[in-house]
């Protein structure tokens, strides 16, 4: 697991993929910050930025998992990993960790935002902290969903597009649910949607239950991805 994690992390930043991922995410972060906190109103309230950023996360994450997972099939190196004395779950975990570290690197690089806020205004410390924790948790669950979807295909393009499709469907999940007019469906959709879950964090409410939700989603999809690797043998 550690070997795979180290290799994959290095591989991400030896190719443009890691930079494209971090760059896209940072660009989104800083542009949103400029638009909502500097350009229109000078405010230290980051809720709008964070609330928006979470929707944009779906854009760069599949680029990461395309490289981490689908590329293995394409290079036929999955044969190496699957015949090595490691379990399929630790293969998936290694990749997940590499992805998470890549996300964390990006998050660290975004810390200029709280610094800028603290220079020009008053930093809402705990809200900001909570937001960052939630952002990382949400990103972690998105990462594992994307790992799962990327593990299903050997085609790089399909890997990305299928991921985008799935996330866009999730984004509109609550809208679609409210179209049905059925209260139970709306409730379930709100419960399932990772995007709705985030909004309480954005407004400074630290919800432990929602955090548990993100962690559970991450665990579930990592497990599913490891099952996909197992299942590939039976094809």
């Amino acid at each position: 697991m550690i070997a795979i994690y180290k290799r994959d992390l290095k591989a991400l930043y030896k190719t443009p993929v890691g930079y494209v991922f971090s760059g896209t995410l940072l660009l989104l972060f800083y542009v949103l910050f400029y638009v909502f906190n500097v350009y229109t109103t000078q405010t230290s309230d980051v809720s709008v930025v964070m609330g928006n950023l979470i929707y944009w996360l779906f854009l760069p994450v599949p680029i990461l998992t395309m490289r981490l997972v689908t590329e293995e099939y394409r290079q036929k190196t999955d044969q190496l990993l699957l015949t090595a004395p490691v379990s399929s779950f630790s293969i998936v975990m290694g990749k997940y960790l590499a992805g998470m570290v890549s996300i964390l690197i990006t998050v660290v690089l975004s810390l200029a935002i709280p610094i800028i806020i603290s220079i020009y205004g008053e930093l809402p410390g705990w809200t900001m902290f909570g937001n960052y924790v939630a952002l990382i948790a949400a990103a972690s669950s998105f990462l594992s969903i994307a790992i799962f979807i990327s593990s299903l295909t050997e085609n790089l393009l399909v890997s990305i597009i299928a991921n985008w499709g799935a996330f866009i469907a999730l984004i509109y999940l609550d809208d679609l649910a409210s179209l049905t007019g059925n209260a139970t469906i709306v409730k379930i959709a709100g419960y399932v949607s990772p995007f709705m879950r985030f909004q309480s964090f954005a407004y400074g409410q630290f919800s432990f239950g929602d955090l548990v939700y993100y962690v559970s989603v991450a665990a579930l999809f990592l497990f599913l991805a490891s099952r996909v690797l197992e299942k590939k043998r039976y094809s």
Partner: peptide
Amino acid sequence: KKRLGYLPENPPLYFDMTVKEYLNFIYELK
């Protein structure tokens, strides 16, 4: 699997690594 060394039909190389990096990785992987 620990007792097996396998060379598949297409050698499963990571093209973004040097031979040294690759073999070190395999050492850890195994």
